[in-house]
Design a protein around this nucleic acid. Structure first.
Lengths: 127, 127, 127, 127
DNA sequence: GTGGTCTAGACCACA
DNA sequence: GTGGTCTAGACCACG
């Protein structure tokens, strides 16, 4: 199980599941077409209610990352679409705030760029 | 008034205020030592309750960005401290998820780096 | 209910709640991991508004004494951290003033030490 | 000028003045019968409003530390009285909370005693 | 069920 | 004038 959930975190559990799956896909731990555990099974594995897992799966489906099918289960989408404009705006806004916080706290462009490059390498070790 | 609040956003109003102030400091629209509007005045300007503004100011104070004083009002902190480890971990986790989402959606390292550089330039036009 | 609040005290109610909880933890009336009353229930018990209780709980959370969770309620933190420097400085400053007052009023070192030892025994009967 | 006021502190200025004078008496920087600066002069020296100084002096007078006289100025009281019960209760309550905080944070009796002994030595170097 | 957000309005403390 | 405390009550989010 590659999912690492912190029950004491301030981040809602369903959102942690979403995040970890996205990171898993990015790192190619999860491959296109791969079948994910059922919501009930994953709920047991993580020790959380299966409704919580279902909420995460549904959200990821609507965002284009997963494909849910009553008979064949839940799979990673083969062709995950680019951002829709509204979603990218939200992502870029979050990015802007984080970078602004680094900047306000006195980190240099070089330091910020370095930190971000490390993360890019971490989640995208291919290419 | 440099603050732009969306009352219909999913992001809590007080958090939007925090974010905009941090961006303002980063862009040097707000300078160290500069006095901010009073919680009540900013509440009127933004059309929100002053308790909401107060919550944002207090949070920014505890994060080291502002200094609040009963008698003299609220100012931008002169020396904003570096990240504490726990806070930076949270920031980097958010960054990781955003970058992983770009990556999963098929954006190349080059594209991601380019988008981020644009934001760095935007919020940190000095240097 | 181990909490004893004086509504007429000059000390803010939320601060009295904070203080009593810290003393409760010290005396091991409250144990690590123990669940506290909900903010609304404690408000009813104490005859104060739940926002006041919430303010105390939030402050204790940020000081590392409690852990709040939207779904599972509020618990005593398992590993309460040591003082951060700034916080300890404030505590020691308060201590200095109190001891200086005893000293100015003509109490001897021996008397002061005795009074303090009594308190240490009271709040820390283990060891 | 032995008074050291921090205008950015959360502690009210008048209270800082009270505290510093008590510490000064304890350290025998201020001696019994010694004349203090006038409220106006001290206000100028500290860069604060003289009403603020006056508030501190008045409070110290009612607590038995100072003697104010319109014609001869303000002096340190020759025989500062012992605590009144109500005042000592407040002092001991503050002490209890600080010690409980150390205890809750895992400091041992020995460590706490050591820290307090250092302060006692600092403010009461005679005897 | 829990805490989180937001509003509205009262009264107090500081300088 | 400023922020600080407290009340009262609404509606939302999480699990």
């Amino acid at each position: 199980m590659f999912l690492n959930i912190d029950l004491d975190s301030k981040i809602p559990i369903y959102e942690q599941i979403e995040n970890q799956i996205i990171i898993g896909i990015s790192k190619e731990i999860l491959e296109p077409g791969e079948i994910l555990p059922s919501v009930r099974q994953l709920g047991i594995d993580l020790g959380v209610n299966f409704h919580t897992v279902n909420k995460a799966y549904k959200a990821l489906e609507s965002r284009g990352f997963l494909r849910m099918d009553r008979s064949s289960g839940t799979r990673v989408q083969e062709a995950i679409p680019k951002f829709r404009e509204r979603e990218e705006t939200i992502a870029l806004d979050s990015l802007r705030v984080i970078i602004a916080e680094y900047s306000s706290r006195g980190y240099s462009k070089k330091e910020i760029t370095h930190k971000i490059q490390e993360i890019i390498e971490e989640v995208k070790s291919n290419e």
